[in-house]
Design a protein around this nucleic acid. Structure first.
Lengths: 182, 182
DNA sequence: TGTACATCAGTGAACGCGCGTTCACTGATGTAC
DNA sequence: TGTACATCAGTGAACGCGCGTTCACTGATGTAC
């Protein structure tokens, strides 16, 4: 059955959003195409009208996730920094990986599975540049990369430990250490 | 066929070591029991004489990986710190996840899959304590956690990016920033 | 304007595959007599 | 010391399952005449 002309683009976008959510929440390997399509009220066969393979979806949805996130740091200046850090290192971000930054969720899996993507380089470079203003020591070279590494590591660890109190301490310690002025 | 009395313990240890290697290298989901046993010259059925399930192996091999690593920071004092950081943030560590720290490889997967383990808490707490001496700002509270987060994040990111030059810059920037005296 | 046809997003059954796990079995060793 | 038997680490076929992908098909829509 053929649908209205804009429907294909709509469906593609719906698949992309759902995938971007699921990959971050359950990992790439932990996300199957059949349940994903079913969640959208579609069947698995229709997937290939929109994407060549699961790999192509991974690439596209990584970019989708980055695009969603990019707005958050697009106009990141010195004044917005504290708020940005508090948000990134919040319990909400920790407890909702599906809507969060893809780096803590997916960097390890991408690295181990030999799935490096130019999109990852782009987000690392761009985010590090924005963060450079909040360096631990403002004259450090590559200070933005250090801040980014601390953010990504803090989120990963805060999700992996079993004691909630330890998890909170990780987030709080990193937030305090990266606070502008520190 | 029954074997010599010490053989069972030997085999168990061989499974554990191989699993600790493979989980860090390919992730838990990316590691199958059949290829694992085959690599040891055994068949899949024999696995269950040693472990109750794959999940039990994951727990045990995480502890195995941590035990392997623990020696490296057992006697970590101020003098050994620079060497420890250089080793942790080395290209060798980045390029050989199977022999490295399990946190950058597995923290995200453990966190997402709801597989939190007391063993993870233990390594995070202990390693953070040892690292406290090399804080970015020695009077920071939880400074060891911050250093650990930066280390783990740096390794994860350095493995995930596609440009080798960017990967090297991440490791180097974090190493410089964490250098004792900085 | 009305009719015939081409398009193609989406269906749903089927494919081969690797997964974790089960289980009846084997046979060299340790133990009991 | 020699024989009979119990043990149990390891074998290998089989299980049900979900995976990514293929493919013949459907049928509402857009287009051509």
């Amino acid at each position: 059955m053929r649908y209205s002309s804009s429907r294909k683009a709509d469906t593609r976008k719906r698949i992309l959003r759902e995938a971007a959510y699921r990959f971050r929440r359950n990992g790439v390997e932990g996300t199957g195409l059949v349940p994903l399509m079913k969640a959208l009220g579609l069947t698995q066969g229709g997937f290939y009208a929109h994407f060549e393979s699961k790999g192509a979806l991974v690439q596209a949805s990584l970019e989708e996730a980055l695009a969603q996130r990019r707005e958050r740091w697009r106009d990141l200046g010195h004044d917005e920094l504290a708020a940005f850090l508090a948000d990134y290192l919040s319990k909400r971000h920790r407890d909702n990986p599906g809507e969060g930054c893809p780096l803590p969720s997916l960097a390890a899996e991408m690295g181990l599975r030999g799935n490096p993507s130019a999109a990852t380089d782009e987000v690392v470079t761009q985010l590090a540049e924005r963060l450079a203003g909040c360096a631990l020591r403002p004259d450090d070279n590559g200070r933005g990369l250090v801040v980014l590494a601390a953010l990504v590591g803090a989120l990963s660890l805060s999700r992996a430990v079993s004691e909630q109190e330890l998890s909170n301490r990780i987030l709080e310690a990193v937030r305090l250490a990266l606070q502008p002025g520190n």
